[in-house]
């Protein structure tokens, strides 16, 4: 069971994550959007959405520090264990709380504002369920280690983090996860399931974060000739629907 949950499942989920995104980008660029509902309702979104998103940016940053940076690096920088934990717990609790409050506001809005609820797809609901659960468990883990000291002995940086990094090194060690508190186990498993769902939900908009806007010229010019040999508008034609021409015969 341990092997399945912490060795096989992560790889399956990551494979779906990668191939799914490739497939979605290739075949559904038109559907690749934030699907904003701001047009319907503004006052709840005005607070909920920035709270949630900025909270999540903090959460992601925290995970990068916690999971991807080996403990040895911070030790070498002279960051003591207690300093690190105080920082991680403080930041984690703040970011987690922001994300959680934002999420609650957004879900409340989605359920109670009728036009928004009407525009909610089944996939949205499934995604919200997983995302919400992962966030709640994650917050609980942080909260429990910070306040209740229920697991003073537990240091995820010697267990969860090496396991997680091992997945990407190709040397996963599921035994590292065996003794981990069940909250962390659930958080990890559900997060990987969420990764598998990711490409099929609106979460894909995370990967179109428009950082290029900071550097591109303001006015974009494009030539009609850019779309030569393509389908209607500027979408590629579906297989079998290419327009006749020398190119499709492989001449050029």
């Amino acid at each position: 069971m341990n092997t399945f949950l912490f060795l096989i499942l992560p790889y399956i989920c990551l494979a779906i994550f990668v191939v799914g995104h490739w497939w979605r980008y290739k075949y559904d660029k038109f559907g690749w959007t934030t699907r904003s509902s701001q047009l319907y309702e503004d006052s709840l979104l005005r607070w909920g959405s920035p709270l949630f998103h900025f909270g999540m940016l903090g959460v992601v940053g925290g995970h990068i520090i916690g999971l991807l940076l080996p403990k040895g690096w911070t030790d070498r920088l002279g960051v003591s264990e207690s300093t690190y934990h105080a920082f991680a717990l403080g930041g984690g609790l703040l970011a987690g709380a922001m994300a959680l409050v934002g999420l609650i506001m957004l879900v409340y809005r989605r359920r109670t504002v009728r036009p928004v609820f009407k525009a909610t797809t089944v996939m949205d609901k499934v995604m919200y369920l997983f995302l919400g659960t992962v966030i709640v468990i994650g917050c609980w883990n942080t909260f429990a280690s910070a306040v209740l000291h229920a697991d003073t002995e537990f240091n995820y940086r010697t267990t969860v983090s090496p396991w997680f990094r091992g997945i990407f090194y190709g040397q996963p060690d599921p035994t590292l996860m065996a003794g981990v508190p069940v909250g962390f186990q659930m958080h990890a498993v559900l997060a990987f399931l969420l990764f598998a769902l990711w490409p099929f939900t609106r979460l894909v908009h995370v990967f179109s974060a428009p950082v290029g806007y900071l550097t591109r010229p303001y006015i974009v010019y494009r030539s009609r000739a850019d779309h030569v040999r393509r389908g209607l508008g500027n979408r590629s034609p579906q297989p079998g629907w290419e327009r006749p021409g020398l190119d499709s015969a492989g001449r050029r």
Partner: peptide, 15 residues
């Protein structure tokens, strides 16, 4: 509008 678009999706046709 084109200048405001974060994705650079709005363009002016050069022709």
């Amino acid at each position: 509008c084109a200048a405001s678009c974060p994705s650079g999706a709005i363009y002016k046709r050069s022709e």
